[in-house]
Design a protein around this nucleic acid. Structure first.
Lengths: 156, 156
DNA sequence: ACACTAATTGCAAATCAATTGCAGTAAGGA
DNA sequence: TCCTTACTGCAATTGATTTGCAATTAGTGT
């Protein structure tokens, strides 16, 4: 299944690390869960597989995965009240960005090739080197928009 | 001076709020400090004016300012180790974005009108309404780039 | 299969930024 | 100047994340 697990195992082999049951569970979480799980969502999932699994193991594994370049994390102001939270994401080859629905908190990925031009322009104009870009769009997803419209009609 | 203080005073008048010495100090911090101070930087500055001023007052005032629309905060992975931190910024009419130097942690503002096209495109393609965009670029600023080059020459 | 060794885990305690409850203080209108 | 109540300081709390350490165990060598 998850080629994440395959890649992780390979990396572990190469570096003298060990593939433990806990790590496997945490890796599986990325297949089982919706995209962009938070550390806590990973932890909650992991508990269903092994109730003994400890939060610190989740944090340590997530940090290790990030270090190994298999997973990245980004900060998104999602959640019902728009509070900030860190979300984790398997690394993909293509740089992608996020739309966050301020209604339901859903996170959707999208690509935006135009960002390359912005990076290049800023680099040229400032003399900096630009390595990474993170764009977050905030608004109401299509579903929440229609729901808002409906409830408006309901309470005039 | 700060029209921030003027605007804040007006808002307070209109809402039955009070302009206290502490709030004035905190507002002054935005003039005195470099752009994008963290809550802690504001607090440290405020202490130099009034050693009794309490962190909770800073947090409460910052939250109030944000609610009033005078200040916004955004999350930037700056700091020497790229750790995440919340930075506060007086609200400006124009949507702007941030370049964060991964070398020295400096934050530079820039505008990117092209973002509007990306917002419109995503909205059209997904049916969502897009209200806000936050773009962060990461890389080495011009100064850090030349320093890195120099130290590379120094240690071949 | 069996033993060995260091990587990894669980647990509990420690951090650390941020928040909250409450009693005392003081802004600003009458 | 008085009075009301918004605001502050303080101390305790929260909640996510980290860390120290003893117990466990993966993966190797035998």
């Amino acid at each position: 299944m998850s080629d994440l697990i395959a890649r992780a195992t390979a990396l572990l082999r190469a570096s003298g690390g060990r593939m433990t049951a806990q790590r496997r569970i945490i890796l599986e979480a990325f297949d089982a869960l919706a995209e962009h799980p938070t550390a806590d969502e990973v932890y909650t999932f992991a508990r269903t597989r092994d109730p003994r699994l400890n939060p610190s193991t989740v944090y340590r594994t997530l940090a290790w995965l990030e270090n190994a370049g298999l997973v990245s994390h980004c900060h998104l102001d999602s959640g019902p009240d728009g509070e900030h939270c860190e979300r984790y994401d398997p690394v993909t080859a293509v740089e992608h960005h996020h739309f966050i629905c301020t209604g339901c908190g859903d996170v959707v990925e999208f690509v935006a090739p135009q960002i390359e031009a912005i990076k290049a322009e800023y680099a040229a104009q400032s003399g900096a080197s630009v390595e990474k870009a993170a764009l977050s769009l905030y608004g109401l997803c299509a579903r929440c928009r229609t729901q808002t419209a409906k409830s408006r009609r309901g309470t005039p």
